[in-house]
């Protein structure tokens, strides 16, 4: 089986976000970039499938410039077999999905895994758009996946519950925590890091998928006014404030 895991490179979750160049770009000095957490759950799931099904190949794919190579190498160090980087700045989620679809049409995979969304632009668009572009089913967010031959059983998250689904491969799956657990995530060991240096990272040029949107500029949320502290022995006062001042209960 051939599995493609699409990864995004995002600021570490502990990053304090600020902007530069008249608020037109993320201030990235000193920011540590990581594999998007939702994608990492997907990558780990792909490795579980590989270990249970000898002969499976796991490719990671990233759409972005060479500044993302360390993040791609980390995915290889965790255990992916090879990598593809589509050499273009990712600007629009449909452009990203278009580039991935273009690559997959020429290089078919049985299972394509993305994250349910990236934690930077929070689009939650690529998984389903990719499914539509390829004319195959998509399940995202997905918290359960098992493959039996050419059939997949999936657990999708829907508002208010979970849905059990089946579909024939190929499919697109959007991962999040639950697809594997936090404790299943892997930290690259020295052997993995050494091996990653020599695993193939193929750079392919973009197909020129059109960008339909761009970010004009960014803002940060307005700071909150000071917190009103209420005495622990006077919860009635808190209730009064919530009722009369905040008017939320």
């Amino acid at each position: 089986m051939k599995i493609l895991v699409c990864i995004s490179s995002v600021p570490d979750t502990t990053t304090k976000i600020s902007f530069t160049n008249n608020n037109t770009a993320l201030q990235s000095n000193g920011v540590q970039f990581i594999i998007n957490p939702n994608d990492e759950f997907g990558l780990t799931k792909a490795l579980h499938i590989k270990e249970a099904n000898p002969g499976t190949n796991v490719t990671v794919l990233h759409v972005g410039p060479n500044s993302s190579d360390p993040v791609i190498r980390k995915a290889l160090a965790i255990g992916a077999d090879d990598a593809v980087r589509i050499n273009v700045e990712a600007i629009d989620p449909l452009q990203v999905a278009g580039e991935i679809a273009h690559y997959v049409k020429a290089n078919p995979y049985d299972l394509i895994i993305t994250g349910k969304e990236s934690i930077d632009y929070n689009g939650a668009i690529v998984a389903h758009a990719l499914g539509e572009m390829l004319g195959i089913p998509s399940v995202s967010p997905c918290i359960g996946l098992s493959i039996n031959g050419s059939e997949a059983s999936l657990t999708g998250v829907v508002d208010g519950g979970k849905e059990e689904l089946t579909a024939s491969l190929p499919i697109v799956v959007g991962g999040q925590k639950g697809l594997v657990e936090e404790k299943d995530l892997r930290i690259p060991n020295m052997r993995g890091i050494m091996q990653a240096r020599t695993k193939p990272l193929n750079v392919v040029e973009a197909s020129g998928s059109k960008e339909a949107q761009k970010v004009v500029n960014y803002d940060t949320p307005a700071p909150k006014a000071a917190c009103k502290i209420v005495d622990a022995n006077n919860v009635d006062e808190l209730v009064r404030l919530l009722q009369n001042e905040a008017k939320v209960i």
Binding site: N122, Q213, Y218
Partner: peptide
């Protein structure tokens, strides 16, 4: 909303 609530982005649509 962007950056998981840590920021906002003004987006221009060209379609």
């Amino acid at each position: 909303k962007a950056f998981s609530g840590k920021g906002y982005a003004n987006i221009q649509l060209n379609h």
